[in-house]
Simulated assay, not measured.
Amino acid sequence: MSLGRVLPLVLFVLLALGGGGLIGLTVETGGWYAGLDKPSFNPPDWAFGVVWTILYICIGIAGWRVWRAGAGDLQTLWWAQLVVNFSWPPVFFAAQALALAIALILALDVLIVLFIARAWARERIAALLFVPYALWTGYASALNIAIWWMNR
C-alpha cells in the first residue's frame, strides 16, 4: 500500500478513534454516573473503553472504504452517525439528560442500520464493519433506557 492510500485510512481511523477518545477524556463520567441505579446487564466500566476502541477503529475503516469508493450517500450517513455518536456522551454524562440521550442513541441506531443496509450491495466490508457497532449500540440503547427508567 502506498502512502497516498494509507494516509487517508490512518486519518479516518484517527478521526473516529481520536474523536471518541477525546470525548471520553473530556466528559466527566465518574461521580454522577457511579451513583445511578443500573440494571443487572450493565457491563463493568472497563468494558466500555475496550469495546469502543475496537468499534471506533472499525468505524474509521468503514468511513475510509466508503470515501475511497466515492459513495456520497454512504459518506453522508457515515458523517451523520459520527456526529450523533460524538453528541451522545456530553448529553448523557455532562448534561445528565437521560431522555434526550435516549432520543440520540435511537437516532444513532437508525443511522447505523441505514448505513449497513445501503452499504451492503456497494461496500459490503464497510457494512460488515458496522454490524458489531449496531449490536453494541442496540445493547447500549437498552442500557440507556433501563438507566433512565430506574432513575426517573
Rank of each mutant, 00 (worst) to 15 (best):
V6L: 15
L7A: 15
P8F: 15
P8C: 14
V10F: 14
L11I: 05
L11T: 00
L11S: 02
F12H: 15
V13N: 08
L14Q: 07
G24Q: 04
L25Y: 10
E28V: 12
G30C: 09
Y33D: 11
K38E: 07
K38I: 01
S40T: 01
F41G: 07
F41K: 01
F41N: 06
P43A: 12
P43T: 08
A47R: 06
V50G: 01
V50W: 03
V51S: 05
T53G: 15
I54Y: 02
R65E: 12
R65N: 06
R65D: 09
R68Q: 15
G70M: 13
T76A: 14
W79R: 11
L82S: 12
V83P: 00
V83S: 05
N85R: 09
W88S: 10
P89G: 06
Q96G: 05
A97M: 10
A101M: 04
I102R: 06
A103G: 09
I105L: 03
I105C: 03
I105Y: 02
A107E: 07
L108F: 11
D109S: 14
V110Q: 07
V110E: 08
L114A: 15
F115G: 01
R118A: 07
R118E: 13
A119E: 11
A119M: 09
W120S: 12
E123I: 09
R124L: 10
I125S: 13
I125H: 06
A126L: 09
A127R: 02
L128Q: 14
V131Q: 05
A134F: 11
L135N: 04
W136G: 09
T137D: 02
Y139V: 12
A140Q: 10
S141D: 13
I145R: 03
I147W: 07
W149V: 04
